[in-house]
């Protein structure tokens, strides 16, 4: 079953097209990654899915419904959560408050409390720092908090924008392990990454984006072996 589908999606900023009519699909349960260089239009694509930027053509379908242009605050209750670029931590709210905001749309208090414990088990550092302001956390901890916060809404589809950005290699490993774990629990994931190798290693399928268009797509393992991808995104000589 297709959970998310982009059909000819176009986004423009002041007359300049950042996304030039792309098609992309994410099946239920999949971990799909969208890789590409800086400025290729990956983040814009994600923002368009979430209703954070206006679209100029094409459609976004989620659970067989057209959600093009639906404001982001209405998407969470339908199970669509996003970890934004740069993590978007509420810096003056405590770790616990940040996580509580992730569950803002939920009213099942008992289950929320349970999920909070699950997040704290997944990220023990967050439990240690639960009453500290989010802004005082390190970059890696903030990324864990951003992922934990998104998980607090019990998403069906999780959109991750560059979770490895600005993190030390060891932390990147840890974050990717977590992403794989979340995926294994049945959450569908669309992952945007510049770290193509790691992304392709954990993904089922992948899309390659260049200057606003999808240039390649297929099973992640195939792309990982593709000489063009190896040269352009994995830093290897062809």
């Amino acid at each position: 079953m297709t959970l998310l589908e982009l059909a000819g999606l176009e986004v423009a900023y002041g007359g300049i097209k950042a996304v030039k009519g792309i098609d992309l699909a994410v099946e239920k349960g999949e971990l799909v990654c969208l890789i590409g260089a800086n400025g290729a239009g990956k983040t814009t694509t994600l923002k368009a899915i979430c209703g954070m930027v206006p679209t100029h053509g094409g459609a976004v379908r989620y659970q067989d419904r057209d959600i093009t242009g639906t404001p982001s605050y209405r998407l969470v209750e339908r199970g669509l959560a996003m970890v934004p670029e740069g993590r978007g931590i509420f810096r003056q709210l405590t770790v616990a408050e940040n996580l509580a905001m992730g569950a803002f749309v939920r009213n099942d208090r008992e289950a929320v409390r349970h999920d909070l414990e699950v997040i704290f088990e997944l990220f023990p550092r967050l439990a240690e720092r639960r009453s500290q302001p989010g802004g005082t956390l390190s970059g890696g901890e903030q990324q864990m908090l951003a992922i934990g916060r998104a998980m607090m809404s019990r998403p069906k589809l999780l959109l991750l924008d560059e979770p490895s950005m600005g993190l030390a290699p060891l932390l990147v490993q840890k974050i990717f392990e977590t992403v794989r774990k979340i995926s294994a629990e049945g959450v569908t994931i669309l992952l945007i990454e510049q770290n193509a190798r790691l992304a392709l290693e954990i993904a089922n399928r992948a899309y390659v984006m260049e200057t606003g268009t999808i240039t390649l797509s297929g099973p992640a393992a195939e792309l990982l072996a593709d000489p063009k991808v190896r040269e352009a995104y994995l830093g290897e000589m062809a």
Partner: peptide
Amino acid sequence: GTAMRATAQNPEVAGLMGINI
């Protein structure tokens, strides 16, 4: 109240949390 503080700090992300700004 927490939602209001969140909106004050980062309205875009507050929207992603399901808060109607």
